[in-house]
Design a protein around this nucleic acid. Sequence first.
RNA 1: GUCUCCGUAGCUCAGCUGGAUAGAGCAACGCCCUUCUAAGGCGUGGGUCAUAGGUUCGAAUCCUAUCGGGGACGCCA
Length: 556
Amino acid sequence: MEKLFNKIFKQLGYDNNTKIIKSNKDADFQCDDCFKLAKIYHKSPMAIGEEVVKALQEDADFEKYFKEVSFAAPGFINIKVSDMYICTKLKELIKKEILGATKENNMIVIDYGGPNVAKPLHVGHLRSAVIGQAINNILKFKGNKTVGDVHLGDIGTQMGQVIYAIIQDFPNQNYEDIEFDLDYLNVVYPKMSALCKENEAVRTKCAQITKDLQDGDPNYQILWKKIWDISVGDIKRIYDYLDVHFDLWYGESHAYKQFSEMIPFLEKQGVVREDAGAKIIDVKEDGDKFDLPPLMLQKSDGAYLYATSDLGTIWQRVKDFHPDTIIYVVDARQSMYFVQVFRATKKSHMYEGGLEHYGFGTMNGTDNKPFKTRSGGALKLEDLIKQVQQSFIDLREENKDMDQDDLDKIINAIIKFADLQNDLERNYIFDIKKFSEVNGKTGPYILYTYLRINKIISKNNSELSNAIYSETDRALRLKLLEVSEIIDQAARERKPHYIANYLYDLSVVANNFYQNNKMVGLTGTEKDDLEVVLNFNNKVIKTLLSLLGISIPKAM
RNA sequence: GUCUCCGUAGCUCAGCUGGAUAGAGCAACGCCCUUCUAAGGCGUGGGUCAUAGGUUCGAAUCCUAUCGGGGACGCCA
């Protein structure tokens, strides 16, 4: 359509590269270029518009594209496309791979985990998991090779604290022989965390253990490995439930192994300098709007920091994968920190590819303050899932007998769709009541739409005719034609909410069709055509849901 | 203090690469199941798009300032 418009513009002596946009009026689409051209060619938008409309109407291809093209003052060209156009486009789209999205072929590492070993997953980990997995799915769908990394915090202060507690709790035992389980870890970490806050001697001791562990103390390593296995096993279990999967279960401990190569490299590149006993990398640049602090590479006591391990992680990723881009899906509070890391990376030339941080908003309570449980602690992710499950089961009698696998899928849909329909950059109000909603703009609504449509169609590979049978049929087909661009936009901006919102809009249109068209009793071309459209509709819904990490239950 | 994100219906949010009369969901009220799943559909009410300027033929959208809120700001992660 844009090509035809451009041809007409050229024919009339206007040099223009048009952009046809969706119309929110009675028309399907509109062209607003008359204003722009009026200025350039010193004519009135009205004159140009009427001229263009006339030329379009006289064009040999008119019917191939349009049902109606009209001018509306002061300068809009309104377009109603022909049934033939819709059918032709839809036929093309159905045959296309990856729903007509443009293919890409990049190597992309995505970092979207960040849980700490020895601590259970809590609600704060939900957003990076859900959003990161969706971005991963979307980029993979478009043909990119992606590597998801959980990036565990597995060698920080909490490990020293837990090791300290174990040594106290299991005196006079060989480290190899000490046995403990997840319940023990779940009790011991909060206890130690509290103890360290009030007792300086213990705190110092724990810090020393952490430092020794980081330096490779073999005895601590034994306990560390035991803690790691138990804790990561539990973390995996919850991620599995959420259908969140990582290719790499690396953590800061892996990054530490890169330091012996990386730090000399950084020194050689001349970017490191000493300041008050610490080693830092200046990352200020001309044009900065404020005084960006340097990146801290090594503390004055010789210990390494968060930033060091992130640089080490980049070092390793470059060696292992040569990525075109590394994407971080991490809380927006770390935005400035990532600027520092990215600049240090570029300044030292250790990696020249893309570095992107998508900082999602904080998870706030209904009071719009960072979310806390009533007792003031962090809500365990597993407890959140259980609460949502309970409220869903309480919703109706039939849900009590629901197949466990279907139930899990619906719970996932509820939690993920609630999050992914919002722009990730915004703060997110975490409202357990919202997670109990299954009406309206929710995951279950989309699932329900899919299932009820699935029930009225059979597989059908007929070739679409050029007929359209009702207004709701027409609306559905037009909506389906938008899917390619939606996927591209979500991928381009790394924002899954475009897909979530489109899924909802599509479901509304599809439900409208369902309500106003009966499939039962239809025969011949009409039955074939509508079945092809509905089959494609469900293919789109299923595919897009899978990009959001949502699977469809057998029944609901 | 500086930087940054945000302010759209009672609540939660879309819309922001500028287009015509600003859209959803929830909540409220009304209607539609002897007809393919009512976890659905249809309708009604509800808005100075924080405020004030500016750019533009045209601003929720771009620019500036102000107010209000979240967040970050060298040896934590």
